[in-house]
Design a protein around this nucleic acid. Sequence first.
DNA 1: CTCGTGGTCAACCCATCGGTTGAACAAAGT
DNA 2: ACTTTGTTCAACCGATGGGTTGACCACGAG
Lengths: 117, 117
Amino acid sequence: MADPLSRVFSALADPTRRDIVARLAVADATVNELAAPYDVTVQAVSKHLRVLEDAGLVSRSREAQRRPVHLEAEVFDLMTKWIERYRRQAEERYRRLDDVLRSMPDADPPPPEENPR
Amino acid sequence: MADPLSRVFSALADPTRRDIVARLAVADATVNELAAPYDVTVQAVSKHLRVLEDAGLVSRSREAQRRPVHLEAEVFDLMTKWIERYRRQAEERYRRLDDVLRSMPDADPPPPEENPR
DNA sequence: CTCGTGGTCAACCCATCGGTTGAACAAAGT
DNA sequence: ACTTTGTTCAACCGATGGGTTGACCACGAG
C-alpha cells in the first residue's frame, strides 16, 4: 500500500492511534509515557508509532537513550484537501439538485425536508 | 470496530473506495456502473459500497431493480472536525515553541534547531 | 410463467493487522 | 565491566480485509 493518502487514513483508522495523536498534540512524549495509559505492551505502542511515522504523522528524534515522539502537522493538509474537495463537490451537487427541485413545476410536492436530525 | 470515526477513516483508507467517492461526488451511479472501470468483480465493488455505507459515506436507494448509490456529504464533517482540532493544537504548540526560543536569553546555546527536515 | 438483468449472500483464500512473548540493542549509571 | 532503563526486532497467533467463485433473490420484459 504505497500511496500516502491511504497510509494517513488507515493510520488514523485506529482509536489508540488517534488517541496517541491527540496526546502528542499537547506535548511530545516518549514511547513509555505514551504506552502507560493503555493496557497493552510497550511493543504494541511502538508498532503503532511506526505506523504513524510511516504515514508521516509523527517523527522520532534521538535524545540520550530516549526517543521523544513529535507530532507532524503538515500531513493533515493532505487529508483535509482531499476531503474538502469532494465535500464541496457533493454539497455543490446537492445545492444544484435543490435548485432543480425548486424550479420544478409543482407537479410532485417535494418531500418537505424530510430530515429528522 | 464500533466507533464512527474509525469506520470513516478506514473506509477512506482504500484507493478504490476513495475513487468511488470521487466519482459519486460527480453523480450518483449504480453498482455496475461503478464497477466498470476497475478490473475486479462486481461483488468486490458491492463489498466496497457496503463499507462506505456502514461508514455513512454513501446511501443506496431502491429504484426499480436498480440500486443507485448516493454520496452523503455530512459525515465528512466528523473527520474534518477531528483533524482540524489536532492540527490547530499542534500548530499552536509549534508557534508557542517558536516564541519560547525567540525569547530565550542566549545563555545556553539551545541545540540550534536540530531538525534536518 | 419464464427468462434475462442488476444486485447480494456465502464460503473460501491469502495477506495484513493488532496483539503477544522473548530476545536484542543502545546509552547512561554504578 | 555490569546493570538498568528505554526501545526495537523477530516470530508467532487469531481476527479482519480485499478478493475470488458460485448460488441466490428481485424485478421487469417477453
